[in-house]
């Protein structure tokens, strides 16, 4: 997921060419207050006129406690992005309010109900405490995300290379997301020239259960993909398992065996996920 400022026309028109699975047009932090209108209009027009192909388009609107957020939603929903990111999500109530508003706009613009998805961003202590309720607040939710920088500020701590200061928050967010049946997506790594730091952090969050990571520069895309990309050996194994499962299903067998070993359904699910990642990361 590549973040791009919403008020840069050159970046908006080329956003999808760098190989990110999803682009995130930002109306929040990277846009100064005096440019909020301009960015909103520009993103709206980019969505109308640029063909982003298979790349998912998500818009990060302004925080729900600001006046800008409502306008953002009203202007952006009609041009049908794949999803909205909701910064500083702190309660289920907020999310439900957004859900209702989108529903109204969908109706008015004859957009399929529920097609605009949501990704609440957890970036305050309050948000972390209410994360379960937030995760379950709307059927539009497809992922929870964590905003590392803002969360650190709210906690009164500094961000470190190891990320110990947000470890608990990350864990709670993964738990809440998985319990709600949605994905957990990790925060950005802001030091663009420190590729090793980026890779180490990506390895960590992958282990913790995150299914993706936001990036702020095209240069960060490949390293993140490489961490998430399964090895050739794993892909081969997964393919065998999925094929065996299909075969078993076709033959009506209740038991799946690969190399004379019995395979459980969770293992099939995991194998399926490995193949999905292999496809996303071009392996």
């Amino acid at each position: 997921m590549l973040y791009l400022p919403g008020n840069n026309p050159g970046m908006l028109q080329d956003a999808h060419v760098y190989g990110a699975d999803s682009v995130l047009f930002d109306l929040e932090d990277s846009v100064v207050i005096s440019e909020k209108d301009a960015a909103r209009i520009m993103v709206k027009n980019a969505l109308k006129s640029v063909d982003y192909g298979r790349v998912e388009v998500t818009i990060r609107i302004n925080p729900l406690d600001t006046d800008f957020s409502r306008k953002d939603i009203e202007e952006i929903v009609p041009v049908q992005p794949d999803a909205l990111r909701l910064p500083k999500s702190e309660s289920a109530k907020q999310i439900k309010k957004v859900d209702k508003l989108i529903e109204k706009i969908e109706k008015k613009n004859k957009i399929e109900q529920g097609s605009i998805k949501l990704m609440p961003m957890i970036e305050t202590a309050k948000g972390v405490k209410d994360v379960d309720a937030i995760a379950n607040a709307s059927s539009r939710n497809v992922a929870l995300t964590i905003g590392g920088e803002d969360l650190a500020t709210d906690l009164g701590v500094t961000r470190t290379r190891g990320g110990e200061e947000i470890f608990t928050a990350r864990s709670l967010i993964v738990m809440a997301a998985k319990a709600a049946g949605i994905d957990a997506l990790d925060t950005i790594y802001s030091n663009v020239s420190d590729i090793k730091g980026l890779v180490d952090e990506t390895k960590l969050i992958k282990k913790m259960g995150f299914s993706g990571k936001a990036v702020v520069h095209p240069r960060q895309i490949k390293p993140v993909h490489n961490v998430f990309a399964p090895s050739e050996k794993k892909i081969k194994e997964a393919r065998k398992i999925v094929e065996a499962a299909q075969e078993a299903e076709e033959k009506g067998l209740g038991v799946i065996t690969v190399n004379d070993k019995m395979i459980d359904y969770p293992i099939v699910d995991r194998a399926q996920r490995i193949l999905t990642y292999a496809e996303i990361t071009d392996k």
Binding site: D14, V17, Y18, S193, H217, P218, R219
Partner: peptide, 10 residues
Amino acid sequence: TSTIPPKNML
């Protein structure tokens, strides 16, 4: 290389 614009890198 690290200062090459992303589009040119691509």
